[in-house]
Amino acid sequence: MVEPAPMVTTHLLYLHGFRSSPQSAKAQHMARHVAQQHPRVHFWCPQLPPSPRAAMELVEQGICGWPQANMAVVGSSLGGYYASWVAQQTGCPSVVLNPAVDPARDLARYIGEQTAWHDPAQRLFFRAEYIDELHALDVRGCPPAGPELALIAQGDELLDWREMAARYAQARQIVRAGGDHALSEFPALLPQVVDFLNLA
């Protein structure tokens, strides 16, 4: 059993990954669970702009009135990278799902026009300057500012699970054999996430 964060979480932020959206399966599953089982929790999953700097400015504006002692953040893939930055700024607990470790390196080949994962009709443009913006959000050299839980699938087809496990060596880890980048088994893991977050 994963030990919960010490404080009760009343405000929960969910950050989606690259080319993803609040329509992702994990975001939707989390939103439904919170609405049905923890209706007192304020849940926010914003549509993040392609610019990392703009994305974190949006998040900062959205959570500026939140009680830092009672908030937590969940992030998937690139959202996991962002979640670690948010946790570093606020000291809040964080849950990262197959988190991107070095997106400045990995996303360099995606510079240019991209399609949105959940709606190919939607286009986004990933600009070269976004790489520097990603570097600016790198908190790998900092010790965890709050409790961390990392869910890692060894079968992730996009990211190296060993790199994720090494990056989050100080976090509580749930490393699953097999699986995929989308963490399709997330519904089965949700109870452990909820326990860790100690949702109100």
Rank of each mutant, 00 (worst) to 15 (best):
E148Y: 05
H42A: 12
L124W: 09
D119A: 12
Q154Y: 07
L137H: 03
M56R: 02
L183E: 02
Q28R: 11
L134H: 03
G79Y: 07
R109V: 10
I63L: 11
D132Y: 03
A145I: 15
Q89D: 08
T90W: 08
H181R: 06
H181P: 02
A5G: 08
G146L: 04
T9G: 09
A108D: 05
D119G: 04
T90N: 05
Q170V: 01
A200W: 00
L159W: 06
M164R: 01
T115V: 08
F126M: 03
W117F: 12
Q89V: 13
A136C: 00
L48A: 09
P147Y: 03
G178W: 11
T10V: 09
A35I: 06
A153S: 14
H135I: 07
T90R: 12
G155Y: 00
A69H: 13
L78I: 11
R32S: 12
V2C: 04
L137K: 05
D138P: 00
Q88G: 12
H135M: 05
A87G: 07
A83P: 03
S20L: 08
Q68G: 09
C92S: 14
P191N: 02
V86W: 02
A166N: 04
R32A: 13
A171F: 01
K26G: 09
R176P: 01
S77P: 10
A121T: 14
V41C: 07
H181W: 10
Y110R: 13
R105K: 10
G112H: 11
I111V: 07
V175H: 00
V193D: 00
P144T: 09
Q122Y: 11
V139K: 05
V59R: 00
V8H: 08
I152H: 00
F43C: 13
L137R: 01
L107W: 01
Q89R: 14
F43Y: 15
W85A: 14
Q61E: 15
A200M: 08
V96R: 01
I131P: 02
R32D: 13
I131K: 04
H181Q: 07
S76A: 15
R53A: 06
F186T: 02
L159E: 04
H181C: 10
V74G: 09
C45E: 05
S94W: 06
K26W: 07
P93K: 09
A169M: 10
H11M: 13
Q192M: 09
E133I: 00
A72K: 03
N98K: 04
G179C: 14
G155H: 13
H11Q: 11
Y110P: 02
A188C: 15
F196L: 12
R176E: 10
F43V: 03
G155A: 14
W117M: 10
A150G: 05
H11P: 13
P39F: 01
G80C: 15
V8R: 15
H135W: 08
M1N: 10
S84Q: 11
H11Y: 12
W117V: 11
A136E: 11
A136F: 06
C92Q: 08
V194M: 00
G17C: 10
S51V: 04
A182M: 15
G79P: 07
H181I: 07
P120V: 10
A169Q: 10
A69F: 13
P49E: 01
A128G: 02
Y130Q: 04
G65H: 15
R176K: 09
R40H: 14
Q88M: 11
N98V: 04
Q89L: 12
N98P: 09
Y168T: 01
L137G: 06
L199G: 12
N198T: 03
Q37P: 01
A166M: 10
N198L: 04
A116K: 11
